[in-house]
C-alpha cells in the first residue's frame, strides 16, 4: 500500500505519500516531490546524503522534511530517488540516495521553491495506513 500521487492545485502542485508507517509515507512523499521535476524511476542511487530535521508536530515536520530535500537538491546538485526515514519523538533522521543533476539527460521540468502549509496533513487515517501531504510552490 506504499505509494505516492500528485493532486491538483490552481498554480502549484500537491504531493502525497502513503505508507504503513508515518516514516514510509514521508519516504513516498519524496518520490512525489521528485516526480514533479523528473522521473525518479530513471534515476540511479549513486550518491547518499543524510538529513536531520525536527519540529513540534508531525505536520510541521513533514513540511521541514520536504524543505530540507528542496534545499539539498539546490545546493548539492542532486535529484533523489530513494529515502530511508526514521522518525522518533519529533526528530527525523533520513538517508537519501540520488544522482547528480545532468540537465541534458534529466530534462528537469520545473523547480520547486518550497513546501507550503496549504492542505498540509499527516494522518493515520486507518490503523496502519498513513498519509502525508501538502502543496509545494513551483
Amino acid at each position: 500500500m506504499t505509494h505516492w500521487e500528485h493532486y491538483p492545485h490552481d498554480a502549484d502542485m500537491g504531493v502525497r505519500g502513503y505508507g504503513e508507517t508515518k516514516a514510509q509515507a514521508f519516504e513516498q512523499a519524496l518520490l512525489a516531490l521528485s516526480a514533479i521535476i523528473i522521473n525518479p524511476d530513471k534515476l540511479h542511487a549513486e550518491k547518499k546524503i543524510s538529513i536531520h530535521c525536527s519540529a513540534e508536530d508531525d505536520e510541521l515536520l513533514f513540511a521541514d522534511w520536504l524543505n530540507s530535500i528542496i534545499y539539498h537538491m539546490a545546493t548539492d546538485d542532486l535529484f533523489f530517488c530513494r529515502a530511508k526515514v526514521n522518525i522518533d519523538n519529533g526528530q527525523l533522521n533520513a538517508e537519501l540516495w540520488g544522482e547528480p543533476i545532468d540537465v541534458k539527460r534529466h530534462q528537469p521540468t520545473v523547480e520547486v521553491k518550497g513546501a507550503t502549509y496549504t492542505t498540509l496533513k499527516v494522518v493515520e487515517y486507518k490503523p496502519g495506513e498513513w498519509l502525508a501531504q501538502t502543496v509545494v510552490d513551483v
Binding site: A63, Y71, Y117, T118, L120
Partner: peptide, 29 residues
Amino acid sequence: GLGHQIGTEFLKSMVMAAAQYDIQLPDRE
C-alpha cells in the same frame, strides 16, 4: 533560491511564534 529559502524559514518561525504574540491564525499559512 535566496527568496524561496527566506520565505520558507520565516513562514515556520511565524507559525511557531503566533501564540506568543497572541495571534489566532485561521490558517497556518
